[in-house]
């Protein structure tokens, strides 16, 4: 794993080019590095050097040379899972998803439970529409992080996204996974927002509202969360409560200091709140029509 990380990052740390727009100057820098590695490999080839040069080729947009170097690295140490991991990443990046899958599979055969390979295969499977299998890979990757370590919130989000994409019958499982992430990482707002969305999609409006309430208590920005509350209540058909929530949100937003009120996100929220109130006003609440 270290060899792969070092190789990938040694390449990245120099110059990672946007594959579509590499001016000559930047390519020269990469070429220089590749030329230096050519010399080193000529003297004493090693798995690490091939992986590093392969990643430079990949960064340079030369997938064929990259794959050759990764294959050479694999030939030096067929028991290492790093060459197929790197191969899988390069193929995935190039859109050759099926082939990437096979490389990740090999990496996992050589090193069962390899977190980087599980993550890569999960992404490949998600791209292929094999959402449940992707979710399983992300789960294994999460479990593969030692108890003293913590995965990034992104891994939980990717799993939830895969499960949600697998169909509405898997939303509950997606939610469960996000809560697992919150339990492990703390109430990261990125995860909280995702749980609120899924609760709403599941029609569990009270649960969504409870989550909004909890998040609001941890925030200094109550207008934002009141607006969320309004959205959920509206989705639940509780228009009177929704109107009250929107009005409360608006009052909170308007009470912000002028400069905070005009920040991009606050402006967007205020606009959506006013729009929602306008729509409700035009149609009237069920209660008001009675």
């Amino acid at each position: 794993m270290i060899a792969a990380r070092r190789a990938r990052r040694a390449a990245l740390l120099s110059l990672l080019l946007l594959s579509l727009a590499g001016p000559a100057g930047a390519h020269v820098a990469l070429d220089d590095q590749i030329a230096r590695l050519d010399g080193l490999i000529a003297r004493e080839p090693s798995l690490d050097l091939y992986l590093r040069r392969g990643d430079l080729h990949r960064a340079r947009g030369d997938l064929a040379s990259a794959l050759i170097d990764f294959a050479r690295a694999g030939a030096i140490d067929p028991s290492s899972a790093d060459p197929p991991l790197q191969m899988g990443r390069a193929l995935l990046e190039a859109g050759r998803t099926e082939e990437a899958m096979r490389s990740f599979d090999l990496a996992l055969t050589l090193r069962p439970g390899y977190v980087d390979a599980l993550t890569g295969r999960g992404r490949a499977r998600a791209r292929l529409g094999r959402h449940l299998e992707a979710g399983a890979d992300f789960t294994d990757a999460i479990l593969g992080c030692a108890p003293s370590r913590a995965p990034q919130p992104d891994l939980y989000l990717e799993r939830a996204s895969a499960l949600a994409a697998a169909g509405p019958e898997h939303l509950a499982k997606a939610l469960e996974g996000l809560d697992e992430g919150i339990d492990r990482l703390g109430p990261a707002v990125s995860l909280e927002l995702a749980t609120i969305d899924i609760e709403t999609r599941l029609g569990r409006y009270d649960a969504a509202l409870s989550r909004v309430e909890a998040a609001s208590l941890r925030s200094t920005h109550h207008g934002h969360w009141m607006a969320r509350r309004g959205e959920i209540l509206l989705a639940a058909g509780r228009r009177t409560e929704a109107r009250a929530a929107y009005e409360s949100a608006l009052a909170s937003l308007v009470a912000l200091p002028e400069r905070r009120r005009t920040t991009g996100a606050v402006v967007a929220i205020e606009r959506s709140v006013r729009d929602a109130l306008a729509r409700m006003g035009a149609g009237g609440t069920p209660e008001s029509r009675r």
Partner: peptide, 27 residues
Amino acid sequence: SATQSGPYYDMFSLPAQGQAGGMVSGT
């Protein structure tokens, strides 16, 4: 960063839980 492991993460104590102000990032 994916597993928050290695020397950088071992040697620094950083506010993943919003302990010093700001929102909880979880990482």
